[in-house]
């Protein structure tokens, strides 16, 4: 079974999915990520799916679960690089990925995390 590597950049964890994921790999990634969020105290998780050709309900659920778990551990999740064909298919499938933030690419994903943080700080100090 292939394991997806998790990279750390500052206080952001970056996962780039480059392979056709088996269901076990998906579950392993879910576990690895939540462990890493706690271990590193990351405030953000970026999942890059620009190389992913299909997202079915199983992978879709994984993305939503990761976002939910991370939020409980005080980290925001951004899914970046979803292909148009994948997005259209997800809509047709009926999967809305509620609670998952998205951005067009990695760069915009990082910008979105910074923005979220600045808003949070602003509202906390007000």
């Amino acid at each position: 079974m292939d394991r997806v590597p998790i990279l750390k950049l500052g206080d952001i964890l970056i996962v780039s999915i480059q392979i056709d994921l088996q269901d076990q790999s998906v579950l392993a990634l879910q576990e690895d990520l939540s462990e890493q969020v706690v271990a590193t105290g990351a405030r953000g998780v970026i999942i890059d799916i620009s190389a992913v050709e299909i997202v079915d309900s199983f992978i879709g659920r994984m993305l939503a679960t990761i976002a939910g778990i991370s939020r409980m551990l005080d980290a925001e999740t951004v899914v970046v690089g979803m292909r148009p064909a994948v997005a259209i298919t997800l809509v047709e499938l009926g999967l809305s990925l509620g609670g998952v933030r998205t951005a067009l690419n990695l760069e915009k994903g990082v910008a979105l995390l910074n923005h979220i943080e600045s808003v949070q700080i602003a509202s906390a100090t007000r």
Partner: peptide
Amino acid sequence: SLVDQTKVVTAASELAR
């Protein structure tokens, strides 16, 4: 088309699972 490819592959994935 690419979109139709993606749709049918996704459906296949669901049904196979």
